[in-house]
Design a protein around this nucleic acid. Structure first.
Length: 668
DNA sequence: CTAGGGTTAG
């Protein structure tokens, strides 16, 4: 990229004065990014005096900061032709331009230039920029080699080394560089920049206590009070060893906060599934933010929390805020709105929001495809996919996960097969475990068990537990005990801790009347000490999230809920619901057997919502696992009996229950 | 008369 034009540094006539355009400016927003020529004309205007080397370096730097590194490199070449003395001031920004363009060839030529002119290794400015360039071009060894040439590297150069290491995933090296800076013991070596780099390294390392150590050091040298540093520290506490959100929050409460602090803390909660905390902190920001106003980033983070919790009322409130702030067409915010509505069961609203987004990127499209897909609207998802390709965007790995998942949820066997093959042949994307997962699911549900098994056998990537699990559940539908045994064996080699698979296998054996195998599975669960991840369901009522666990008695209204549910279950039994008395599952699951009423969380949540919501309103329930067969049957009849509409989001997809039927066609 | 560093959204 723009490599040939840089060398060599001999004198040439100055640039043509006729190139000046009195109306152009460097920051002209109309300037096209891919066309360096107008930029150069702007540059010549800026470079009023070619005899002043510094004016050239400013021009190179300006073009770089306006986002056109290629033009910056061209300007550097022009600068050298105009005045060889421009080399010294213009070389560092030129190196940064090569880094921004990730042009190793340009960078290497500049390195040579630096060597010939003697600027490297003696000039610290050029040296730090050179290291920066090599790290940005993913050449850590070249950077290291250059660093070893520098006789007395200053703290700026050392910090550049550490940050480059972080960038290239040499996190422990970065930390040891930081430690050596601390050990050098001369005042001022460890400054704000060095501490920031160390914290960014500590955020990527599983070891506990590193962030705390840096925190202590930062306080000791009096660097606390820097909000930027504290913001980075929040992230490091939450993402580094220990995932200590508590420590992050403690710091957050003490420090001086700007908008980034609030956004960071809210996003950390949202990303860790602590939706209530994220939403709570957002409210607090609005009330006690101390003049800090929320922005697009805040709203995206809060929308993520709403999406996770299925908090539609809160989600709508945030959406109103988005509209008030005129951010509906913002691609990041808009995509978050789409995701929120999809995951809150309002896919029509998602579609409306989707249409408002300006400059939709691949994530926006993928979110919409996934949204339709998880609601079982396979054709709609494929239509969006077609529109996306028409718009000129190329689908990627992620897009195809959404597309295949949509086919799988809607049972679109031929379409799924078609896109799976086309993805490989036409788009050159090698399918990963996620794609195989969708295909195994799709083929399995359609009864093509052998084809699904063959697919797993032929794949290049290592099959994961979810894949064998998908095949296993297909084996259950089609009562294929032999293939179930094979799947289970592979499964238990991979993931011996997820009890769901043991339950599934045990059920398959039970249904086939193979009680010895049932017993063997039961023993396996006991000896391996497997715990079931607690299943829970949640319901939003008046903007507050109510959580229910299996046999949960912690809710203040629990007595009324159980009484109501008991009556409801009686009524639906009269209407034809047969409770699943299959003892297999309960024998397997000690905790569940011993719990007072063995009532699944989704039934509790539904009962609670029926009791407390307005007649005629749609009930939304979120479940963290797959909805169980028994509850699925029960909820269907509940909708018939009560005339209510119930939407359940489980870990994989949505179930729209209405008039005794479910949108999944009992196929999930 | 320049240079080195970081965080948030998708």
């Amino acid at each position: 990229m723009a490599a040939a034009s840089i060398m060599p540094p001999h004198t040439n006539p100055p640039p043509p004065a006729t190139a000046r355009d009195p109306t152009a400016t460097v920051s002209d927003p109309q300037r096209h990014r891919d066309a360096p020529t107008p930029s150069l004309r702007a540059l010549f205007l800026r470079a009023v005096d070619p005899s002043r080397p510094s004016s050239w370096s400013t021009a190179v730097a300006d073009l770089l900061s306006s986002g056109d590194p290629v033009a910056a490199l061209a300007a550097f070449a022009a600068a050298l032709r105009a005045n060889p003395a421009a080399l010294r001031p213009a070389l560092p920004p030129a190196l940064r331009a090569a880094a921004a363009a990730t042009s190793l060839s340009a960078g290497r030529q500049l390195h040579l230039l630096a060597l010939r002119s003697g600027l490297f290794p003696s000039d610290a400015y050029s040296a730090s920029a050179l290291l920066h360039m090599y790290y940005h071009c993913s050449r850590p060894l070249d950077a290291r080699r250059a660093f070893d040439e520098i006789p007395a590297p200053n703290p700026v150069i050392v910090t550049a080394m550490a940050s480059g290491c972080v960038r290239n995933n040499l996190v422990y090296t970065a930390l040891s560089i930081f430690r050596s800076m601390v050990a050098s013991d001369s005042a001022g070596v460890v400054d704000e920049a060095a501490a920031l780099v160390a914290l960014s390294a500590s955020a990527r390392v599983p070891d506990r206590g590193i962030t705390g150590g840096i925190h202590a050091l930062v306080s000791k040298i009096g660097l606390d009070g820097h909000t930027g540093l504290a913001n980075t520290m929040l992230d490091a506490y939450a993402k580094g060893g220990g995932h200590d959100l508590g420590a992050a929050r403690k710091l957050f409460d003490m420090m001086e906060r700007d908008v980034v602090s609030w956004n960071t803390m809210i996003a950390l909660y949202a990303q860790n599934g602590l939706s209530t905390e994220a939403l709570g902190l957002y409210s607090k920001m609005l009330i006690v933010g101390g003049g800090v106003r929320c922005n697009a980033v805040t709203l995206s983070a809060v929308l993520l929390a709403c999406a996770h919790a299925g908090a539609i009322q809160a989600g709508k409130r945030i959406h109103n805020q988005v509209v008030r702030m005129g951010l509906e067409d913002n691609v990041y915010v808009g995509t978050s709105v789409v995701d929120m509505y999809s995951k809150c069961g309002k896919v029509e609203m998602a579609w409306k929001a989707f249409q408002k987004i300006k400059g939709k990127n691949i994530l926006s499209w993928s979110a919409m495809i996934a949204g339709y897909g998880m609601h079982g609207y396979g054709q709609e998802a494929l239509h969006v996919f077609t529109d996306m390709r028409k718009s000129g965007l190329k689908p990627n790995y992620i897009t195809f996960i959404s597309v295949l998942a949509a086919c799988s949820h809607a049972g679109l066997l031929n379409e799924g097969r078609y896109w799976y093959n086309t993805m490989k042949t036409e788009f050159g994307i090698e399918p990963g475990v996620e794609h195989y997962g969708c295909m195994v699911d799709l083929l399995g549900h359609a009864g093509c068990l052998d084809e699904a098994y063959d697919l797993i056998k032929e794949m290049k990537a290592k099959p994961d537990a979810a894949l064998w699990g998908a095949l296993l559940s297909a084996c259950r539908i089609y009562k294929n005990v032999e293939l179930a045994k094979i799947s289970a064996e592979r499964l238990f080699e991979l993931d011996a801790t997820n009890s769901g698979y043991y339950v599934l296998l045990s059920n398959i054996y039970a249904e086939a009347g193979r009680w010895k195998d049932v017993e063997r599975t039961r023993v396996l669960v006991k000896t391996r000490g497997i715990e079931k991840p607690p299943g829970y369901s949640s319901v939003e009522l008046k903007g507050k999230i109510h959580l229910f666990y299996v046999g949960d008695k912690s809710h203040p209204q629990y007595k009324e809920i159980y009484a109501y549910l008991e009556k409801l279950l009686e009524r639906i039994q009269e209407a034809g619901y047969v409770p699943n008395t299959g003892s297999v599952l309960h024998d397997l699951d000690v905790e569940e057997r011993e719990s007072m009423l063995r009532i699944h969380s989704e039934k509790l949540a539904v009962a609670f919502a029926l009791m407390n919501s307005v007649q005629g309103s749609v009930i939304h329930v979120i479940k963290n696992l797959r909805v169980c067969t028994d509850c699925h049957a029960a909820i269907k009849i509940i909708t018939k009996l009560t005339g209510r509409e119930i939407i359940v989001r489980d870990i994989k997809r949505f179930h729209h229950f209405k008039d005794g039927l479910c949108s999944c066609g009992d196929y999930w």
